[in-house]
C-alpha cells in the first residue's frame, strides 16, 4: 500500500514581477485506492499544487515535502517523479508536432517500465483502452494533441493514465470544458484505472459535477493556498449549495495576514533569485 504525503508545502511561482508565493503550508495524506477531491475558488492555488507535485520548472518548492512512500519527490526531476509513480492529467495538454500518439505512448511506457512493453499485449491494451474511451483508431497515428478538440485532449490524458498505470494521479480540472457525454467517458476511464490498479486520485475541480461520476472519499476545500476544511463527500454537496463565500470570508483575516506576508515574501523572493536559485527557468 503506497502513500502520497504532502507536508507543509510552500510553493512560489515565477512571474514577470518576480517570485509569488501561492501555496502556504498544504498538508494532505493520500493512500492508494483513495480519491481526494480538492475544491476551491479560482486563484486559490489548486493548479499550483498539481504542477508542484509533477515538478513543473516554473514552480518552486520553498519549504515542505512531497513524499511518495517516504521518498522525497521535490528533489527529483520531472521524469523521475513520473517513473516513481506520479501522473498529472493536465488541464491544457500541449501539442507535440511530428510525434504520433502511438510513438509517444510506447516511448512513455518504455521509460516508465524500464523496458519496452511486449508488442502483442501492448497493442491489445492500447486498442481496448482507446475503444473504452470512444477514441477512433485513427487517433493513434495523429500527432499528440495536434488538432485535437478539448474533449479529445482530455480523453488522451486518461488514455495515458490507463496505460502508464501510475500509483497516484493528479487530475487538474479534467472536467473543465467537457460536455456531459465526454465527462461520463472520462470518469469511467478514471474509475477503471482505480479498480484495475488501485490508483490513488487527487481530483482538482472547480465544480462538483464530476463528483457524481467519480465518488470521492474525502473532500478538501482549498482557499488562499491552504486546505481550509476537510470532510467526506457531503462537504461537496454543501459547497454546491453554499459556494465558497463562507470560506473566503472566514479567511479574510488570514488573507490580510497573507497579504502582508506576501510583501515580505516578495522581498525575500528577490533575494533568493539573486542568490542563484538553481531552478529558475530562463
Amino acid at each position: 500500500m503506497s502513500t502520497l504525503e504532502i507536508k507543509d508545502l510552500h510553493v512560489s511561482v515565477d512571474t514577470e514581477q518576480g517570485a509569488k508565493q501561492i501555496l502556504r503550508g498544504v498538508n494532505l495524506v493520500i493512500k492508494q485506492g483513495e480519491t481526494h477531491a480538492i475544491m476551491g475558488p479560482n486563484g486559490s492555488g489548486k493548479s499550483t499544487l498539481a504542477y508542484a507535485i509533477a515538478g513543473h520548472p516554473k514552480y518552486h518548492v520553498t519549504s515542505g515535502s512531497i513524499l511518495l512512500d517516504g521518498e522525497e519527490m521535490t528533489t527529483l526531476s520531472v521524469d523521475a517523479r513520473a517513473r516513481a509513480g506520479l501522473f498529472l492529467a493536465m488541464q491544457y495538454p500541449v501539442e507535440i508536432p511530428g510525434v504520433t500518439v502511438t510513438n509517444f505512448l510506447r516511448t512513455a511506457k518504455t521509460a516508465i517500465d524500464g523496458s519496452a512493453p511486449p508488442i502483442r499485449t501492448w497493442i491489445k491494451d492500447v486498442k481496448s483502452s482507446m475503444t473504452a474511451l470512444r477514441m477512433d483508431s485513427t487517433f493513434a497515428e495523429r500527432n499528440v494533441n495536434e488538432g485535437f478538440s478539448g474533449g479529445e485532449k482530455k480523453r488522451n490524458e486518461i488514455l495515458q493514465l490507463e496505460l502508464l498505470k501510475p500509483k497516484f494521479a493528479v487530475l487538474d480540472e479534467t472536467d473543465s470544458g467537457l460536455d456531459v457525454d465526454a465527462l461520463k467517458i472520462v470518469s469511467e476511464g478514471v474509475n477503471r484505472a482505480k479498480s484495475n490498479t488501485d490508483l490513488g486520485v487527487l481530483l482538482i475541480t472547480h465544480y462538483n459535477r464530476i463528483l457524481r461520476y467519480i465518488t470521492p472519499d474525502f473532500v478538501h476545500v482549498f482557499v488562499a493556498g491552504q486546505v481550509a476544511e476537510s470532510g467526506g463527500p457531503e462537504l461537496a454537496v454543501q459547497l454546491e449549495n453554499e459556494g465558497y463565500d463562507e470560506y473566503v470570508k472566514a479567511s479574510a483575516a488570514a488573507a490580510a495576514a497573507i497579504a502582508s506576508a506576501e510583501a515580505a515574501d516578495a522581498a525575500s523572493g528577490v533575494a533568493a533569485v539573486a542568490a542563484g536559485s538553481p531552478a529558475v527557468n530562463a
Partner: peptide
C-alpha cells in the same frame, strides 16, 4: 515538461521533438 511528466528523460524528449520536427 509534458513529455517528461510521462517519464521520458529530457534527452529522449528533445530527440522526440526534433525528430518529429
Amino acid at each position: 515538461f509534458y513529455l517528461q511528466s510521462r517519464g521520458i528523460s529530457e534527452e529522449e524528449a528533445r530527440r522526440l521533438v526534433v525528430r518529429g520536427f
